[in-house]
Computed example of a mutant assay.
Amino acid sequence: MSTVSLTLDEIFNLAKKTLVANGCNDETASILSELIKNAERDGSLSHGLFRLPAYVSGLKSGKINGKGTPEVKRISPSVIKIEGNNCLAPVVLNKGLPELAKAAKENGVAVLAINNSHHMAAMWPETEKLAEDGLVAFACTSYKPAVAPAGAIKPLFGTNPISFAWPRPGKTPVVYDMATASMAMGEVQVAKREGHKVPLGTGLTKDGKETTDPGEIADGGVLLPFGGYKGSAIAMMVELMAGALVGDNFSYETAEKDNNDGGPPSGGEFILAICPDKTAGTSWQKHSDEFFDKMKSMGDVRLPGERRHKNRQDTGPRNINEELVNKIKSLS
């Protein structure tokens, strides 16, 4: 695979130029480009520049509103609702997370219910942001069907990621972001592009047979949930929390309404924030740090998020797939 070396600033500028050229205003382009740059910086390659062509597809078709403004409403002291107005989710989150953090600190617990936004980025940025503000956070969102429920060979669930973050004042938060599928579809697509096999159990061919070929999964096949029935149950939970609970679509309903332009569909997101100072008093940080120390003393144990946090200490250039860079340049 041929690569080109780009600085983090060059990654940001390439993304922003492309987004502005395809209908984003400066604010939207800047917010999304920062997210893309940070994904490349942290080694989350399947959520960095790799996603940009799909964003452009949605902008070109008019499905995504690159110049819109989300509407934030406080439904009750602990419930915040955002009408996304078909904006990209990072723009919606930029407006909503400060309101969520404020409500959680005032009331101990608060939820953010998002409708009609386009989420295809990593989910750790929103939970990590809340954890950096001293809050425990959980987030989930659905997509279009790509994952078969346990016992089935046809898709019903999205890859339905969940993200959790625990604050560690003075230290980097503990953060995980995981698909409830055996593997995120973006990672399958990256494996296909780069000619890698995927583990058996990742997904099935269009005929319902197990395969290690990512192309057979991505092109007409289906992903499987992680952990069989356990992962399937968690994926179902995400459908309910990011769909019915926030008043938005289930994945199969999203697919029925989407124009299939290749860009991220419109959907909902559920975010929960909890203030540990309210629920645990003042000793929670010392207590949880003792727990993390216990974990790390048990062998080669890495706390969730440590790899990303280590990667971001390197502010040097990143090697980016040359074919992808050329494709992006052609879009602007």
Results as ranks from 00 to 15, higher is better:
164 F>M: 08
169 P>Q: 14
164 F>Q: 04
161 P>S: 12
159 T>F: 01
152 A>T: 05
147 V>C: 07
161 P>A: 11
158 G>N: 06
175 V>I: 14
154 K>C: 07
153 I>K: 13
181 A>Q: 05
140 C>K: 06
152 A>C: 14
144 K>H: 12
167 P>Y: 06
179 A>Y: 05
170 G>S: 07
178 M>L: 14
153 I>N: 09
171 K>D: 15
180 T>F: 03
146 A>D: 05
148 A>K: 00
177 D>F: 01
159 T>K: 06
177 D>K: 07
173 P>A: 14
153 I>Y: 07
155 P>C: 02
145 P>W: 01
142 S>K: 11
161 P>R: 06
151 G>F: 13
171 K>G: 11
161 P>V: 08
171 K>E: 15
173 P>K: 04
140 C>W: 02
173 P>V: 08
158 G>S: 07
148 A>V: 02
156 L>R: 08
167 P>A: 10
160 N>D: 13
175 V>K: 04
165 A>Y: 03
169 P>N: 12
176 Y>E: 11
159 T>D: 03
161 P>F: 05
171 K>T: 13
157 F>P: 00
152 A>D: 13
168 R>E: 15
146 A>G: 03
142 S>T: 15
178 M>I: 11
177 D>S: 03
145 P>V: 04
143 Y>T: 07
142 S>H: 02
166 W>Y: 12
180 T>I: 05
176 Y>V: 10
164 F>N: 00
137 A>D: 01
150 A>E: 05
166 W>K: 09
163 S>C: 10
173 P>F: 01
151 G>K: 04
160 N>S: 09
181 A>D: 02
145 P>T: 09
174 V>R: 03
176 Y>R: 11
179 A>N: 04
146 A>M: 07
156 L>S: 14
149 P>F: 15
162 I>E: 00
173 P>R: 07
165 A>Q: 02
163 S>Q: 09
145 P>H: 04
169 P>V: 10
139 A>N: 10
145 P>R: 00
166 W>M: 10
179 A>C: 13
161 P>I: 08
177 D>P: 12
164 F>S: 01
139 A>R: 01
149 P>T: 10
